[in-house]
Structure formats: C-alpha cells, structure tokens
Design a protein around this nucleic acid. Structure first.
Length: 535
RNA sequence: GGCGGCAUAGCCAAGCGGUAAGGCAGAGGUCUGCAAAACCUUUAUACCUCGGUUCAAUUCCGAGUGCCGCCUCCA
C-alpha cells in the first residue's frame, strides 16, 4: 500500500509524439514542471478551472508518488488585452493585472488548487527576455526591424514538430494578411516597440515590451533550467504558443527544451468551444455560486483530461450527487466508529465459519499470496484497491478509471458497515479493513484529488438540499425557524410518544418541525435531524 | 483548403483484440409504526454505418456519415 518509497512506472501522453511514453525525469527524484498561466485581464472561467485542476492533480499525484516537484505557473501581466482594459478603465496595466491576479488566486484557493512552487510575472522577467532575444539576434535566429524583434522561423528546422504541421502548409493555409515588415508571416515578435502611452521597458532596440511567447521560455529557464520534464497548458496553446516556445528556446540553448508536453482538452458549452464571441462564457464564480467547489473538481475528474468536456449544470448536479455519496460513506464510517468505541457494536475475532467463508472468497479472487496487485471483482485486501488506483493514475492520469476503483471500495465498506450494524457485531478483520480503507480514501481523495476536505457530517447537512440550477438560485444554507435546543426537546418528547405508540401525536411533531425547516430521521441508534430550510 | 480529435445504455463516462468499469437518473428490495435518508441489488446479446484483417473486433485497417477543434488572441 505504501507507494511513497516505491515509484511505479508512469505513462504520459506526449503531444510531441502523440503517444503514451514512459515517464523518466531528468533528475531521479525531481520533476521540473511548467504550466502556462493566465493573462490577467478578466475573471477566470471554467476552462481555466479545468486546466489548473488538471495540472493540480498531476502535481499532487507526482508528489504523492514520491517526487520532489518544482512547479512553475506564470502570470502574463503585460499584453494587448491588458493594455486595452487599462485604457477602458483609465487605470494602469499594473492595476488591472494585479486585480485579476488577486481574483484568480481567490478562485484557485476556493477550488483547492495548490500553489505552485513559483508564480513569476512576465514583467519581473524582462532582463532575461531581453537576454534571450539579443542572443537570438546574434545567432541569426532573430532580426530587428524598427524597434521590433522577430524570430526567424525558417532558421529553426524543427518548426512544427509539436503541432505536427509543416511550414509550407501553414503558408498555403494562411488566413491572415502578411505583415510587410516581416520576412515571413510565420515569424513572431520577441519584442514589440511600444506605442505612445503604453508601458515600456528600455532595451537595445529602444523602448518596448516583450512579445507573448518569449516570456514562458525566459521564466521556464530562469526557474527550472534550460531543459525541463513537463510543460503543460490548454490544447489551444499547442500552436502557435508552444511551438514558438520550442523554436526560440532550442535555438537559444541548443538543447532540448521540454521532454513531455501535456495538453488538456477544452470545456465546451453545448458541444461548442466556450468563447467570449459566442457569449457562452461561464466563470468559476458563476458555478461556485451554486455548487460546492469539490463538485466542480469531481465533475472534471469524471472525464479524462485530454477529452473535451461538455459543461452543463445537469453534469455538475450529477457530480454533486456522487460527491454526496462519497461523503455519506465517510460519515457512515465515522458514525460506525462511534458505535464500536462505545461498545454498542461488539468486535469479534473471526469464527471458524467466517474464516471458511473468507478463504473460499479469496480463493476466487486472489492469485498471489500476499494479495498485492491482485485484480478481481471483489478484492480482498485494501492493497489491491490501492494498486488499481495507482495503476489507473499512472496510465496517463486516468482519473475516471481511478474513481471507479474508489466507488467500488465505497460500496464494499458501506456493505460491511451496514451488515455489522444489522447484526450488532463486526469481525476484527473487517474493522481493520475499514480502517485501512479510510486511510486509503484520505490519501487518494483528499491528497491527490483534492476533494473530501470537509467534515462529512457538516458537508452532508449543508449540501443535501436540492440546488435549483436553472434559475441560478441556490437553496443552500437555508434558514430555520427554531433553535437547536428546542429541536432536541421536541425530539425527546416525540420519542416518548413513540415509545407509548402514540404515533398520531408523534407525527404531528415531525410535521411541525418540517414546516420549520427541520427533517427528522429515525435510526436504530436514535433520532437525528437534518436542516432542509424554509423557503 | 491543410492538419487533428471524437462517435459506447435515458444522461455522463472508462475500456481499446477474447462478447462491456464507474457515476447520475430509473426499477426492485432492506431498514422503519409510518416516513425520509441511507444502504444493497439491478439496468448495453451486434459499443455510428458499410467493408477488410483475425480463430476472435467496440477495440486494428479502409471507406462513409455526423459532431468538434487547430491553422488568428485564447486554458
């Protein structure tokens, strides 16, 4: 079960080769990972959420499996869109970008997206960018025209290796007018001469600002070195952004820039790409107004990161129900532990009959003798669940498959607990299984998937109420018209009535409490209540 | 026009040579005085169509149909 000291083979789909490759980092225990961050000029949408949750899970998984991951995720804080926004709002670009960086952090925190090791800003890396551009000019890979510096695409023979395009076809298929100044329309700006009133920095070519692509190269090299293991981002960045990064970086260093390129699929709305022009944009906030952040995370995890996801509130609602199932299971375990602690459920050592049954069972399902890595419909040991989970995650981070292992386990533990509650005892062996199962769930769900971070009981209480996602109004955190103390009193009175079989009066109390937003639930071990709220 | 991806039950979604994981919804059941919640059980005989390869294809190859993406800023 302990995977921490035993790294397993991880396979990653590499955009470069369009196939799964065995992951072998440059350094034995260290992983160098860079993910393109946002351009800070507006609120984050759920497409951003998917990208950063995807890489958050990859980051968490690699760490969990024992790697020391150095993770860099940048901010583009100078760019045309930011300048435009700053002009519109009569603010500085710095004011605009820092505002949206703050908002972004709020969203990521809400989504339990872990902070990367470094979050550099483009404007903090200007000298490094100038250095790269200068050297590229020296080497003949770039040229200056009137204060603009362009990268000479023809000077890099591997251009197109990531996006699997060839230069001739790109030229033939061009839809953009050729800029007279550039030698080749594919050439891209490393440095842009600044216009009047725009923020600018001094450079060997006069006042200007960096082009977009160069910032990632410069920041990646600054924090991680000239060659790194993983570089990620949305699949729209493959061309031209990542293609250009490769061209300039490899021309600059003469070394391989990135070993594994990972790209996540898009979030669609009604099967179409989400975009501002189509006005089908949904921000992270829109969703979090109605749904718990963990519901969104789960929603994404049900689909492989490379597939596109069609976003819908029905889909998130479905994920929400699934999340609830996970919490219910954790809660059931907690309640059950209380019962065993209070000795209301007896722990028994295995009887012969039971042992015989187990043996028969394991003969059916296990092949090995210690159970590790055993595959079967009804695995005996927690190790086999764990192995299947880690195997799934190691196969190009297949969260959907890993999740199915979790749900199988949930069914199994629920059954053990319910059976035990029905017969008022549990076998010691089964109790141990339950305890180990919970440790495994904590590691897989909380540490790696970043969900199940809340107290199960509280979560269920506040998230069980149905969500009206159609009109955007949530019924979460409903008000009740009665105090907790009064509720307890009424429950007591009702149970007295029930003991005397005065059901009509007992039902009256149930009904009146329901009207005040409190639903009673009778269990074997007493009456509990749930807040449903009054509308 | 060039390049690429996808098509699996009511919905979502894994699998990708040996007749189908999981979730949601649905249906049965357990529990309960009733109820609710929870839990358990259950839900695809051709995995878009037509050919081909193979002892065997949802899984490989070819053609077709449909949807989508990239080639322009974009997660």
């Amino acid at each position: 079960m302990d995977k921490k000291n035993k790294k397993q083979d991880i396979y990653i789909f590499n955009t470069l080769s369009l196939s799964k490759e065995r992951f072998k980092p440059i350094n034995e225990d260290k992983v160098l990972m860079y993910v393109c961050g946002i351009t800070a000029y507006d609120l984050s949408h759920i497409g951003h959420a998917r990208a950063y949750i995807t890489f958050d899970i990859i980051y968490r998984f690699l760490k969990n499996v024992g790697y020391n991951v150095i993770y860099v995720r940048n901010f583009t804080d100078i760019d045309d869109k930011i300048i435009k926004k700053a002009n519109e709002e009569k603010k500085t670009t710095e004011a605009v970008s820092s505002k949206y960086i703050d908002e972004y952090h709020k969203d990521m925190d809400a989504l339990s997206v872990l902070s990367p090791s470094y979050e550099p800003k483009a404007t903090e890396t200007i000298p490094e960018m100038i250095e790269v551009a200068s050297k590229l000019i020296d080497k003949g890979n770039a040229y200056e025209i009137n204060g603009d510096v362009f990268f000479r695409v023809n000077s890099f023979k591997d251009y197109g290796k990531l996006s699997h395009k060839n230069i001739d076809e790109l030229i033939a298929g061009s839809r953009i007018p050729i800029n007279e100044e550039k030698e080749n329309f594919l050439d891209f700006a490393l440095w842009k001469k600044s216009k009047e009133g725009e923020p600018s920095w001094d450079s060997p070519w006069g006042k200007g600002r960096p082009g977009w692509h160069i910032e990632c190269s410069a920041m990646s090299m600054k924090f991680l070195g000239e060659s790194i293991d993983i570089h990620g981002g949305g699949s729209d960045l493959i061309f031209p952004h990542h293609e250009n990064e490769i061209a300039q970086s490899e021309s600059y260093t003469g070394k391989n820039f990135v070993n594994y390129w990972i790209h996540n699929g898009f979030v669609n709305i009604n099967s179409e790409k989400m975009s501002k022009s189509l006005k089908n944009f949904i921000t992270v906030r829109d969703v979090l107004e109605k749904f718990h952040p963990e519901s969104l995370r789960l929603f994404f995890m049900f689909t492989h990161y490379r597939s596109f996801i069609d976003f819908s509130y029905e889909g998130i609602e479905s994920a929400r129900q699934s999340l609830l199932r996970l919490y219910q299971s954790a809660n059931l375990y907690n309640e059950f532990k209380k019962l065993t602690d209070e000795k209301r459920i007896v722990i028994k050592d295995a009887k012969e009959k039971y042992t015989a049954l187990k043996t028969a069972n394991s003969a059916l399902t296990s092949v090995g003798n210690n159970g590790t890595g055993v595959k079967g419909k009804n695995p005996e040991n927690i190790e086999s669940y764990s192995a299947q989970f880690y195997d799934s995650m190691s196969d190009d981070f297949n969260t959907a498959k890993a999740l199915s292992v979790i749900f199988d386990l949930v069914r199994k533990t629920n059954k053990i607990i319910k059976d035990a509650m029905a017969q008022n005892f549990i076998e010691r062996q089964d109790l141990k299984f339950l305890d180990l199962a919970m440790i495994f769930m904590k590691r897989s769900l909380s540490d790696i998937f970043g969900i199940l971070n809340e107290d199960p009981k509280l979560f269920i209480e506040s998230n069980s109420a149905p969500i009206n996602y159609e009109d955007g109004k949530t019924k979460i955190s409903p008000a009740i018209a009665i105090s907790g103390e009064e509720i307890e009193k009424l429950i007591e009175r009702r149970n007295e009535l029930r003991n005397n079989k005065e059901y009509a009066s007992a039902d009256k109390i149930r009904k009146s409490l329901l009207e005040k937003g409190v639903a009673l639930e009778d269990t074997n071990f007493g009456t509990t209540y749930k807040i449903t709220g009054v509308n």
